[in-house]
Amino acid sequence: MNGRPGNGRPANGWTGAVRWVVAGGLGRLLVVLPPYAWLTLFFLVPFVIVLKISFAEMVSAIPPYTPLVAWVEDVYLQLRLNMANYIFLLDDGLYLTAYLNSIKIAAIATALCLLLGYPMAYAIARAPEARRNGLLLLIMLPFWTSFLIRVYAWIGILKDEGLLNNFLIAIGVIDQPLAILHTDWAVYIGLVYSYLPFMVLPLYATLEKMDLTLLEAAADLGCRPLRAFLLVTLPLSMPGIVAGSMLVFIPSVGEFVIPDLLGGPDTLMIGKVLWVEFFTNRDWPLASAVAVAMLVLLVAPILVFQRHRQNAEEPE
């Protein structure tokens, strides 16, 4: 047998591999691999586990669910997919109500963040260049304190004898303390407060890079400043609006800490339901089904939306 590689052609795997490494394939792989490995290990694998548990049945054991695959009569390998959890989700109105309520609260919080965040981002983007970084730093400053502590602090502000009520009574605006804590209002305050930076930063990024001569052109063509904002600035900042809204809306839907600490017993959000199923009822399969349903319900519209945007941006 002739063991020598023929005229420059990869005669065996080794020369091919060497060529591949020389061509930069290894470098590319090393760059791409870590994020893929990270996502697989910490997102995909846990999700598959949760998906698996959602098809199991609850038992009082450790772990508290039945295996999906079992030997039956020593010869059959049986895969039992228990759909009861999903059926229960549809049957019991509680879950659907919690989903819808979460989406409603998240949507309102997102809208409030947009209303508050847009002027902030606009003001920072149009501020003198020397001042912009300082203002951005102020937006990010709250991140230096733990999220949990900041939400706890709101209890101190919003409770009946809290800072806000004491202040309002002191200046004579109200006689009786306002019941804000443990209502949906407190949840909105907490959500808007916590997620506002995620709205401001992407908005700032799009507004800051906008070509201001476009506004001069609009004015030159007879457009008043407010109309110029609506016809030019607003449409051009759409990517920032979409990105900021996604960054606020998605975590808000599944938020647990804020409704748990600031919300009342009536505040029904899917994150809280999930917690109760896992830790109070110890019904892991049902809780997993809730989690999977939430993911599907949230991800599906986002994927459709992304696809739509990509199509819109393709040249005709």
């Binding site: 052109a217 609009a218 051009l236």
Partner: peptide
Amino acid sequence: MPPYRRPTNMMFQSYALFPH
């Protein structure tokens, strides 16, 4: 008199066409 009321129109150096 603000630019939007003037009887002038300008062609900008960068053209300033609305990209959207």
